[in-house]
Amino acid sequence: MCLGVPGRVLSIDGMIAVVDFWGVKKQVRLDVIDEPVVPGDYLLNHVGYAIRRIPPEDIAETLAMYDELLGEVRGGGDDLMAADVRGELAGAGKADV
């Protein structure tokens, strides 16, 4: 129940970072973040405070984990559909690179 929005750090001045959220720039305070932040990093913003630095590699990792959850689909008519969708995903994945 906490609206959290990810954005990319453009610049840092002391405890304040200028962060880009889908093209909108906003100042975000760094008082409660638990690791060093540099321009280019992703931050999770909640009420104007960064609460987490999002490691870029974790985004790919999360998506890989979700695909793994799909991994073991077996049996039944639904299987064809899931396989079909996985095929689509593979195609989309290529375009994504």
Binding site: L63, D67, L70, G76, D79, V85, R86, L89, A92
Partner: peptide, 17 residues
């Protein structure tokens, strides 16, 4: 990428299964 309908459809199918 976390709003990809194709992946969502696949996860939905997995859930149903």
């Amino acid at each position: 990428r976390f709003r990809d309908p194709a992946r969502a459809k696949a996860l939905g199918a997995r859930l149903a299964e």
